[in-house]
Every structure is written in C-alpha cells, then in structure tokens.
Write a protein that binds this DNA or RNA. Structure first.
Lengths: 240, 240
DNA sequence: TTGCTCCTCACGTCACGTGAGGTGGC
DNA sequence: TTGCTCCTCACGTCACGTGAGGTGGC
C-alpha cells in the first residue's frame, strides 16, 4: 500500500496542463491539494488526481469551471438540465457559425486572388448579400450562385440593358399594352429563367425583394414609376 | 444641405448598441466622433455614422475590432488572407462543437428523466464513450447505438454470461478445440451480429478495442488468459 | 555555486456590463 | 426644481498566460 503523492510539476506534465492552471483551479476552489511540504510546496494525493481527471472529463463537455465544481461537490447533482442547457447553447452556436461560414465562403469566392478589392466595395457586396438572405432560403441562394457562375457581371449588365430599353418605350409615351413593350416580356422571361435556373419560388423571392427594397431597384436604374410600368405590362401580358 | 449630427444616445438607439459600446469604440480608436459640444458631449456626423455601419458589417463577419480598425483605416487592405484565416478558425470551431454535440446528445439519451444518475457514474460512462471514439468512426458508433436501442443492459449481460460460461470450460481444463467450447462459437457469432447489425468493420473495430484496452476486458470479466483461450478457439473454429 | 522547481503577487486578455459620483440642458 | 441624458473613472467578466522577484532541494 504505497500512497504516492505528486508535486505540481509532475501533475502538470501528466495531464498536459500548465502549472498556472493548477494554481488557478485551487484559487477558485476546484482542486485543493491535500497536503503541502514544509516549504509550502503543493502535494497532490491519488484522490486529488482522480478528482482532476473528473474535472478534465467534464471540461471536455464544455461545462464552466463553476458548473464542474458544483457537480463534483454534490454527487447527486441534477445533470439533465445542465446538459440540456449546454445542448441548446451548442445548437445556437453551431447554427450561427455555419451561417457565418456560408456567408464568408461566398464572399471569399468573389475575391479573386490577384486583385485587391477595396474594403468599402467588399462591405457593399456583403450588405447586398445580407439583404438577399432576408428574402431567399439558403438553398435558393445556392441555386442563384450556381446560375450566376462566372458571368455574374454579364447577367447584371443584361438586366440593366433590359431596364434601359424599357425606359425608352416609357419615355416615348407607349402604353404598357403596346406591342413593342409586350415584345420585351419574352426577353424578360428568358432573363429570369437564366438567373433562377427555372425555379419559380426563387423567381418569386427575387421579385418580392426588388419590389420592397428601393435601394436594390436603384442599383438597376429601376425607379418606382418604371417598376409600375413593367408590372402593368406583365399583368396585361398575362405571364406571371 | 442639412448636415445633421447625433448625440450618443440617439446613435445607440438607432444601431441597437449600448452607449458603453460607443464609448469603448472611441477608447480603442475605432470610431471617434468628429465633434463635441462645449459641455463635452459627443457629436457624431453622417460620416461617423457611415463608418459605424461599416464597423457593424465587418463585426457580423466575426472579425476582431482590431482587424476591423485596420481594414477601415486602409481601404486597400488585403482581405483575402484575413478571410481565409477566419474560415479556417470557423471550420475548426464547427467541427469541435459538432463532435461535442454528438457526445452530449448520446450521454443525454442515457439519462432517463426521472432518476438521478450519480455524477461519478456519468463521468465513467463518458470516459467509456470517449474510449470507444478512439476505435470507431462516428457512423459505426451510430450503428452501435441503433443496435443497442433500449436493451443495452441486456446485451451487456448476455456477453458477460457468455464469458462466464467460457470460463467454466477453461477451468474444467477443456482444450480450445473441445467440442463443448467450439459449440459456443455460434453463440458468439450471434452476439456479435446482434450488437453490430452484421457490420464486419464495426465488429473488427470492437475486437481491436477489446484486445488493446485491458480496462474494457476487465469490465466483462475477460482476463488475459481467457482472451487468449477464446482467440485460440476462434482460430481453430476458422470463423473470423 | 549552479540549475531546476517551487512559491506568491499582480497585470493582461477581449469586448464590453455595471455601477459610482457628478454635470448639462430642457 | 425635477427628470433625463451626458460625462469620466474604475472594477468585473472567464480561464488562464506571462512575467517579476524570491525561496527550497538536489
């Protein structure tokens, strides 16, 4: 029956903790060595080591030191509520971080390695992305990204050209029912199908966004009057 | 041209920040109000508000205030490496938290709502689980859980009974090739198939664990000599 | 005597929260 | 005069890291 005892350095090596950490655990009343030498050096008994192992096990589960202390000082501590809380926190954290990861990935994909995009422009892109997230599901956004591929700018330019042409008709005083205007609806359908990969829910989400966010309309030169003109043309044409 | 300016409380309400946060942002040189009243009250101009919006945008991406300051004070700041670092950190974090979540969930499932499992026993279960993780993939563990279902204890008891019976033969001096011992191999195959849902890789992982971890053998009363005895019987029987 | 380990303060971390005690403008 | 907002310290958070300055045992 050899009851061994460890000095703080030995214990630190065995557990891969720092000496400071063991000091701290004593400070907060989590692990008090059972004895000291005459010179004041800490001596940890086997019981202390067992307790430390338990501390580390519970720490692995993400509990705070305070929770761990309570658990160990009372063996019939009700663990279930504690675990449920921790699970809830984790769910939230993971969801948050995954959302963040998706957003950052998409932003990163637009940063071509060579050129240095100005920070201000980067932030604008990000704000646009976050606005989009209000209207589309993650899956729909992925579809949109897939549809855009490398020719995002070409698509944007095509839509702008469409708006410009529409404005010409409007300024020429033509009615929304005018054959020249109605002829543009096929072009519009093609544009929408192209950018949404024929996903009607996605198209609807985009339309909802465009009609409720004036800033986005402005980006394409689509003022309120012109939007109304377009809506009327579509209503007359009968294509959704 | 009305250049408006805001006092700190107005800005706090608009952005849903606390006054203290705005104080802090000034303290660390992140957002300095362009003016003060005679009495020393902070006055934020429209430019300041724009800067604050940018700060909040970047904060959303999980950057530190220090990184944000650097980005905003230098418009051609190289964002790509910063984002890559952040993505890496996030990947690690998410992986860690998901592992933690899986472990906690499985532990929670074993805590039946009514009874209070003692903390020490809970920790033992957890340590056993972490040992298992060394030998099996997450998918294999899931299979194991599915196979166990509600009758985990019955399975464990069945395996213990098997070991006990085997020991009887050993203590009676029968050779591993003895018909009575060989007759037990079919029982063993059934047990293995039952707990692994006929997954051979899973069975192999479990066997590797049992043969390398003496503590686990001990839990079933399977000492080294008896393990050797069983191995020999299996070798003679020719079933893997 | 020289290393190595041990000791006890005590400040720093990161992004603020939370008072304490006092002043300014309606 | 009474509220409300504003101000400047300054300590607390969580789990330690990182010295500073000194002692003990081989």
């Amino acid at each position: 029956l050899t009851t061994h005892s460890w000095k703080i350095g030995d214990l630190a090596k065995r557990t891969h903790l720092s000496v400071r950490t063991l000091h701290y655990y004593e400070e907060v009343g989590l692990l008090r060595p059972s004895a000291r030498t005459e010179a004041g050096h800490r001596l940890y008994t086997e019981d202390d080591v067992v307790r430390l192992q338990r501390i580390l096990s519970l720490r692995q589960l993400g509990f705070t030191l305070e929770d761990i202390r309570r658990c160990l000082d009372q063996d019939d501590y009700a663990l279930a509520p504690l675990i449920d809380l921790q699970l809830e926190r984790l769910r939230e954290q993971i969801a948050l971080q995954q959302g963040l990861y998706q957003r950052l990935s998409r932003l990163r994909a637009r940063l071509h390695d060579g050129e240095n995009v100005p920070v201000t422009q980067f932030i604008e892109t990000m704000e646009a992305m976050m606005q989009i997230e209000q209207y589309l599901t993650p899956e729909q956004i992925a579809t949109l990204e897939a549809a855009h591929g490398e020719h995002r700018e070409a698509n944007v330019a095509a839509f702008k050209a469409f708006v410009d042409q529409l404005r010409t008709h409007q300024q020429a005083g033509r009615e929304p029912g005018d054959p020249a205007v109605q002829a543009m609806l096929a072009q519009r359908r093609a544009l929408v199908a192209d950018t949404t990969l024929d996903d009607p829910a996605l198209a609807q989400g985009l339309q909802r966004m465009i009609s409720t966010e004036p800033e986005i309309r402005q980006r394409f030169g689509l003022d309120d009057a012109l939007l109304a003109y377009l809506s009327e043309a579509v209503a007359i044409g009968g294509s959704c």
